[in-house]
Amino acid sequence: MSKFEEIAEAVISGEVEKVGELAQDLVDEGVKPSEIIKEGLVAGMDVVGARFKANEMFVPEVLISAKSMHAGMDVVKPLLAEGESSSAGTVVIGTVEGDLHDIGKNLVAMMLEGAGFEVVDLGVDLSAEEFVDAVKEHNPEVLGLSALLTTTMPAMQNTIEALEEAGVRDQVKIMVGGAPVTEDFANEIGAYAYASDGSASTELAREFVGA
């Protein structure tokens, strides 16, 4: 097994300390930090995402894998060369105005981080203006809007309209999700895509940034 495979395996099986140690070994051997991330840590999380989707891995296992990946990141990230990015892209995410339900959103944020994205989690109950400001400030490739209540789904549309008015609608790809949200609804309100779960959102985000 190559060192990369070994670190990916340790991410998959959620061995937090081992991932940190293996990352350090690779650094000491002179492997490029960006390669450790891509070939080792993110490669492991890709398998986790696929297994989660296939019901072969479950939420707590994904959590501990993500934690392991972060243990590796903590070692590697400070060593990245100037201008060299560890991130697959930036995603801004939050629940829309009036909606306080954040379990789904948190899972999606975690899966995206696992896939190597820089995630700016704005939290819950965010007004359209707050989303607009965050898009201007963080300049993300992807914006994720979450709603669990049927009554807050219209706030997704309001948010998209506000982004349009502010002239930043075309700077980001917008994906929407949450238990009552459907593909049809996403199309109706002019979102770019609908993600049914954390794994789907990761695939979409990858598509968006062309990674």
Partner: peptide
């Protein structure tokens, strides 16, 4: 009730 899977 929130999931035991995300918080033990």
């Amino acid at each position: 009730i929130q999931p035991i899977g995300t918080d033990g």
